[in-house]
């Protein structure tokens, strides 16, 4: 099967998965109710209260959550793929330059200092960006191997924000604020609202779209800076643009669902096993794969247990069998 077919199949699977997810949930809702609500067929004895409830359930509870899972999954795997290609290193994940550490700190600081969730979201986003900007500035301050310096600055900035996060946790009221911070950082979509997704989704699509549109250049970058320059690519400008786009979407994933690990590191590898290393195909494929994976995991989180299980736990635990299956089935080759 050619890679185009595989991508198309995956896209179809995602659409089917999203549709199926709208139908299932812990609130028992029959297909008849759904079809009636969607205007597919008319039913006798319409109860306006029931219709209102179905509307809330579908549009306010399920849809934002499904969109969140899809967008966050796609964002994390696209930025992970881009980072792995850019740094020519298979162990790199979107958090490399400190964006997740910065965003975590921002979220925690917001929860301590403000009583408004909007402020928490803004602070999460701002500190994620700030962390990466500090890392970029530090890497520029010294002349030498660009990639190595970026990685090193990223490690330093991550350490700094992790330490600052610990300070916040240490100072937080352990009865109320500390658990709120801890559980938020475990990730989850249980409180995603329609308003949040209305703002976040276009931004995330913009970021992932930017990265995917630069996938051809990304292929050149994987050959190394010297070769890329020789081919006439403005390496620094290109890399900065890619890093900023990846940072934007990674930061937004924390705003929407807290820290969701694993997806950004392993999904790109699984994608590479299936369709090979060409970023022009790999990036959109990873996006679909990450979206489908997170959608599946979030469905398990909201369907299997009466109370929510933090998503960060499930992505890692369920990811291991997925990874094993991918290893077994992978045909695309690593490099």
């Amino acid at each position: 099967m050619s890679v185009q077919y595989r991508t198309a199949a995956l896209a179809l699977l995602l659409v089917a998965g999203a549709t199926a997810s709208m139908i299932v949930g812990r609130y028992p809702l029959s297909l008849a109710d759904l079809g009636h609500h969607l205007g597919l067929w008319a039913m006798e004895g319409t109860d306006p209260k029931q219709a209102e409830l179905v509307r809330t359930l579908l549009l306010e509870v399920r849809l934002p959550r499904i969109l969140a899972a899809i967008c966050v999954g796609a964002s994390l795997s696209v930025s992970g793929t881009a980072f792995q290609a850019m740094f020519i290193n298979p162990l790199v994940s979107p958090g490399l330059l400190g964006v997740l550490a910065g965003a975590s700190f921002g979220a925690a600081a917001g929860m301590i200092l403000s009583t408004r969730w909007l402020v928490v979201q803004a602070s999460t986003f701002a500190f994620g960006l700030l962390a990466v900007c500090i890392a970029l500035a530090m890497a520029r301050a010294y002349r030498g191997d660009r990639l190595l310096l970026l990685v090193l600055s990223g490690v330093v900035v991550s350490a700094m924000f992790t330490a600052l996060l610990s300070v916040i946790k240490y100072l937080a009221d352990p009865y109320n604020q500390l658990p709120a911070i801890t559980y938020w950082l475990m990730g989850g979509f249980s409180l995603v609202t329609r308003e949040t997704m209305t703002v976040m989704m276009p931004l995330m699509l913009l970021g992932t779209g930017t990265i995917i549109s630069l996938s051809g250049y990304l292929n050149v970058l994987t050959m190394g800076d010297e070769e890329a320059r020789a081919l006439g690519v403005r390496v620094t400008a290109l890399r900065t643009a890619l890093i900023l786009a990846a940072t934007l979407v990674s930061s937004l994933t924390v705003v929407v669902g807290g820290i969701i690990g694993w997806v950004g590191l392993i999904i790109p590898h699984v994608g590479r096993m299936i369709v090979g290393p060409d970023n022009r195909i790999l990036l959109p494929f990873s996006a679909l794969l990450g979206a489908l994976y997170l959608l599946l995991v979030d469905n398990i989180s909201r369907l299997v247990f009466p109370v929510e299980i933090p998503l960060g736990i499930l992505t890692s635990l369920l990811g291991i069998p997925v990874f094993a299956v991918a290893l077994r089935l992978g045909r695309g080759g690593w490099n």
Binding site: Y27, Y175, N176, G188, S190, R302, V307, E308, P310
Partner: peptide, 21 residues
């Protein structure tokens, strides 16, 4: 009674649909 969870900072975050149900 079924355990629905609660918002009291000890995990057990309620599933919104369980609460609605």
């Amino acid at each position: 009674l079924p355990v629905l969870g609660g918002w009291f900072g000890q995990g057990r975050t309620p599933n919104l649909e369980s609460v609605m149900a």
